[in-house]
């Protein structure tokens, strides 16, 4: 099954819309609650990343009985050093974003902890693509 969502950069009140929708879908599909939690946490973090850093983004979700694949494609500043961004606590978030309780540098590391596969590709000045997968059968 395929689903798509749009993300609006800078609008924190809408961050989490896609993860809430996906959560509903996975509950209806009788996916193990523990797996749902991992998926939702990972997608929520990724959504917040796009909202906090990029101008606009799209989410593509594919679900089959073996795995859940999520791709987030954004138009934004890109990540100059992905290795650094993957480190816990590293953050380039602005003070305004931090004031809202985001930007603690937990985003990408948290996504990594909750997914089975994670690929981040980025071009500075153009945007970032985050691909993640969670397997349903261990």
């Amino acid at each position: 099954m395929h689903f798509e969502f749009n993300i609006e950069g800078g609008n924190f009140s809408k961050a989490g819309t896609a993860s809430s929708q996906l959560k509903k879908i996975l509950k209806q599909l009788n996916v193990d609650p523990k797996v749902i939690k991992r998926v939702v946490v990972a997608l929520y973090e990724a959504e917040v990343n796009v909202v906090a850093h990029a101008y606009t983004g799209q989410i593509f979700i594919d679900i089959d009985t073996n795995k859940i694949e999520i791709k987030l494609v954004d138009e934004g500043p890109g990540i100059p050093n992905i290795e650094l961004a993957m480190q816990q606590g590293y953050s380039t978030a602005s003070p305004a974003v931090r004031e809202m309780g985001f930007g603690a540098g937990m985003g990408l590391p948290n996504i990594k902890n909750n997914t089975d596969e994670l690929h981040v590709a980025s071009e500075v000045g153009k945007g970032t693509t985050v691909k993640m997968a969670i397997f349903l059968i261990s």
Binding site: M1, K24, I25, K27, Q28, L29, N30, V31, P33, I63, D64, T65, L136
Partner: peptide, 19 residues
């Protein structure tokens, strides 16, 4: 848990039902 939201116990069936 005793979820009321699942469309079917079997995920493949649930996907068909969701479609």
């Amino acid at each position: 848990p005793r979820s009321i939201l699942k469309l079917d116990d079997n995920m493949a069936e649930a996907m068909k039902k969701m479609e």
